[in-house]
Design a protein around this nucleic acid. Sequence first.
DNA 1: GTCTATATGGGGATAGAC
DNA 2: GTCTATCCCCATATAGAC
Lengths: 223, 223
Amino acid sequence: MSKEQTRARLLDAAERLFAENGFDGTSLRTITSAADANLAAVNYHFQSKEGLIAAVFSRRIEPLNQERITRLDQAIRAAAPAPPDLEDILRAFLLPTLRLRGTADGLEAGHFLQLLGRVFSDPGSIKAVVLSQFRPTAQRFLEVLSQALPQLPRPELLWRLHFLIGSLAHAHAAGELIRLMSAGACDPDDGEGVLQHLTTFAAAGFRAPHTRPAPQKASMVNP
Amino acid sequence: MSKEQTRARLLDAAERLFAENGFDGTSLRTITSAADANLAAVNYHFQSKEGLIAAVFSRRIEPLNQERITRLDQAIRAAAPAPPDLEDILRAFLLPTLRLRGTADGLEAGHFLQLLGRVFSDPGSIKAVVLSQFRPTAQRFLEVLSQALPQLPRPELLWRLHFLIGSLAHAHAAGELIRLMSAGACDPDDGEGVLQHLTTFAAAGFRAPHTRPAPQKASMVNP
DNA sequence: GTCTATATGGGGATAGAC
DNA sequence: GTCTATCCCCATATAGAC
């Protein structure tokens, strides 16, 4: 068994098992037997369990960022010199992840989406790694969004971007829950459908007039 | 030390520690020493760790549901015989959780929000307990939303409700991350501010015209 | 009801042979 | 590079004294 093959099998098995049972819920013993590898192989290839977790994320995040930026640049060029349509910006952001569901190699990558959706709310230390890799891309999108919606104050734009990320993360991480709660009416595996629904919803949300300082009712804390 | 006091201290400590370190990341030893109780007390009061987790949720969820329904009924009565404003429906749903931040007894309950936001994407078996307690309330809101937006097909309405839940869960569970990513411009502890921003965003999203079957571009899978 | 002590099992990591 | 065997730690749960 070659070195690279073992490494890849470990990553695939870890990705799937972490998605299904969580990081703490998956032992190295479970991973290595699923990957037909030896227990010590994890420490040889990734130094530690934390190293393995970080590697599971890094392997997918870099291509994901690249595809997002490529599609964003395409949208910018196609619309130049005007700013691109809001919908096209959103699609450039959403499509690269949603596309991972239901495609050929997506059989593996689908598990990764669950992890990615969960990472924002996870208590562990993985957030730092993922966030540092995600930040430049988010910053880039923020700038372009800001040009497309120049009347929106920056904090409001930030909140709306977070709501978008939350909706996307929820669709990824809680897919089976959504299927269950909707009694099958919502299919989280239909990436194209989710893309359509989320783009429509979020585009309208982003275009909403900006929030007024607060209505003249009493404070909500003591209504 | 009375029985009820010990029970309550265990729940408080567990709530905080689970929020900070996750369920698997928190041992019964850590909980019992934080609560100044004996290790065996957990098994005496809650039978098992799972029982403790379930109790942490049940204690908060029931009042939360009641407040949501009460506010929804108020909005319905105030607007009768017309359906209530979309914004009022959304506020009835959002306010009871967001209000838990920054209020007096909210010092404890704030930790609960993190848990609640995380539970949808957690790999464990807690989902089932929480979902079963949440479902009737969600169903009720769905009906009222459906009356306020009669032109929206049911699946689209369901998706939009899931996007709302995702945004809310993200604001709760990833609060510190949002603060960090926005370099302080977004304050997740300002419940009233989050309520304003999210209501504006989501109301516009819910009001968007319903998604058309699909644009006549090529499939997104092979663009 | 509360405590101490312990049973029982599993975890991550590593040393050293091959 | 890969494997076996093992070290050492900590978890949940319970039995039985107080």
